[in-house]
Amino acid sequence: MSLSSRMAVVLTTVGVLAGAFLSSIGHLTKERIALNKQREIEKAIIQVVPGTSSNQSLYEEKKLTIYGGMDEEGALLGYAIHATGAGFQDEITFMLGTNIDLTRINSLAILEQKETPGLGAKITNMESFLRYWENKDCSQPLSLRKPAASSPEELSPSEINTITGATISSEAVLNTVNSSLVKTRELKEDGKLKLEGKNAR
């Protein structure tokens, strides 16, 4: 066999064998990876809409998915808004829980972020950021308190404390929360956030 045809045969064989091996590995792990993602989302929904026993995806677009959290009888308890927006270094993905009227935020959970460790990454910290999102009035756009208030009692019902040294990360979360709330409200007014199936009210 000439050298060039031997080269072609070897490279093709290596490529085909590698491809076949990888496709079987991909097939074996695909389900589990999808399941992991789904589990993570379910856990976050339960966290931000307390009492949820089942959920339903009500609306989906590229960087915004809205879930309805339901109790055992299938009645809607609140919305869980899964949104992604620009952060300081990379996108920040969170799950935001609201009541049915979209006037009150239950709580916020950060799912993915690559902010600066020790500074912006504090957005995942309960003590320095997340607790300010609990039970907030969101009937009007939320705002940031800067410089940060020393105690949560000083904040108005629609104010969030800024993380000292991480204004950009705090603002990034706030802006995505506000814009996703506006969008969710629009969708709700257009009647696009209805539960489907036998659980519909």
């Binding site: 490279l11 290596v14 590698a18 589990r32 990876i33 992991n36 993570e40």
Partner: peptide, 23 residues
């Protein structure tokens, strides 16, 4: 070229394995 294909195959296996079992 052959080495890279072989290495890339095992890297992908490692990556999928971690994503599936240690998310």
């Amino acid at each position: 070229a052959s080495y890279i294909v072989i290495i890339a195959t095992f890297v992908t296996v490692a990556d999928r394995f971690l994503a599936a079992f240690f998310p």
